[in-house]
């Protein structure tokens, strides 16, 4: 197991490295000149050259990327109009538009996104599995049809419309805002409830459907019949034998979904005014703020790789037949 994890971490590092080089090539070598964008319309060629040299854009691409990677591990210095600025070890450069270190911007945004996404995940994973199981048990009954009907209805509404409706009309919820968990846990939870419910409910709809399909299959298995014949209670038959088998496919989808959401729950964050990764990425994109964008891409790659590893390890707990290696 430990050896396996080590192997996976090594391969993860290579994946992240490839993602890094590829996005570097795409962004930094693109035809648009970041210096020109920063400088604006009325800009003298001298000024552009000045900015280019301060950003290191006048160096050859290979040197730029080694400088970038060196910055991540050892930190680097930026010279700006004669003054030298030192950027500490995990250095991802400075934001063009805000002038702040990218690491600092990420460090502010990540807790917001994690709070939103994990809180919602608790809601939809729990509710989805529960409702899906209930629907599977009552397959074909009016309550099953009602559940599936509402799930499909919710899934059919575009997410941003749903989120907007909640933001505009569900006014009983506390005003959405982000407070650090460490400074005030109650305000933290209160400010996020709306986002949790919105993201949670839409995903509950899909997870109910996944869980139902998966449960119908596992409840039809012969070993479930064996369990019934033992005389154990129906609840234990359904949850210990049925649901456990149904969780494996759910874990796969959940891993992918969670990784996607952790790189930024864009609509949720922007509609509820929560300064998370999605909002940060979008702003960087609009302002051609390449270092920030690079940082987000890099973080996204790391999250995806880590989530895949976690899912694979979770499999071994859900299904003892799975061997890692």
């Amino acid at each position: 197991m430990l050896l396996y994890i080590l192997k996976r971490v090594l391969s993860a590092i290579s994946v992240v490295f490839v993602a890094l080089v590829a996005s570097f090539a795409l962004f930094f070598l693109a035809p648009t000149d970041p210096a020109g964008v920063i400088c604006g319309n009325r800009c003298t060629p001298e000024r552009v050259a000045d900015i280019r040299s301060s950003l290191g854009l006048d160096e050859p691409p290979a040197e730029q990327i080694t400088g970038y990677i060196k910055g991540i591990f050892a930190g680097r210095d930026f010279t700006n109009g004669g003054t030298v600025q030192h950027c500490d070890a995990p250095c991802l450069g400075y934001s063009y538009s805000l002038g702040q270190p990218v690491t600092k911007l990420l460090a502010q945004a990540v807790p917001v996104t994690i709070s939103v996404v994990i809180g919602a995940a608790v809601v939809y994973l729990f509710l989805g599995a529960l409702l899906g199981t209930m629907a599977a048990q009552r397959r074909g009954s009016p309550s099953d049809k009602l559940l599936m009907g509402s799930a499909i209805t919710i899934n059919s509404i575009p997410y941003f419309v749903f989120a907007l409706l909640v933001a505009l009309y569900v006014t009983v919820l506390p005003h959405p805002q982000y407070t650090s968990f460490l400074s005030n846990p109650i305000a933290w939870a209160g400010g996020l409830v709306a986002a949790w419910l919105t993201l949670g409910v839409t995903n509950t709809a899909s997870y109910t459907r996944y869980a139902r399909a998966s449960m119908i299959e596992s409840l039809g298995q012969d070993f479930v019949r064996t369990a019934r014949s033992k005389g154990i209670s129906e609840r234990r038959v359904v949850y210990r034998h049925g649901l456990r088998a149904a969780l494996t496919p759910l874990a796969t989808i959940f891993g992918i979904d969670l990784a996607g959401q952790l790189t930024g729950a864009l609509f949720t964050e922007s509609i509820f005014g929560l300064p998370g990764l999605g909002v940060l990425t979008l702003r960087a994109f609009n302002q051609y703020d390449l270092p920030v964008l690079m940082g987000c891409v890099l973080l996204g790659a790391v999250v995806l790789v880590v989530m895949n590893l976690v899912v694979d390890i979770v499999y071994t707990f859900l299904d003892p037949r799975v061997r890692l290696g």
Binding site: F223, R225, T226, P320, R321
Partner: peptide
Amino acid sequence: YSSLNPRHT
């Protein structure tokens, strides 16, 4: 083959 729960010892 199918009547024993593969996830239980």
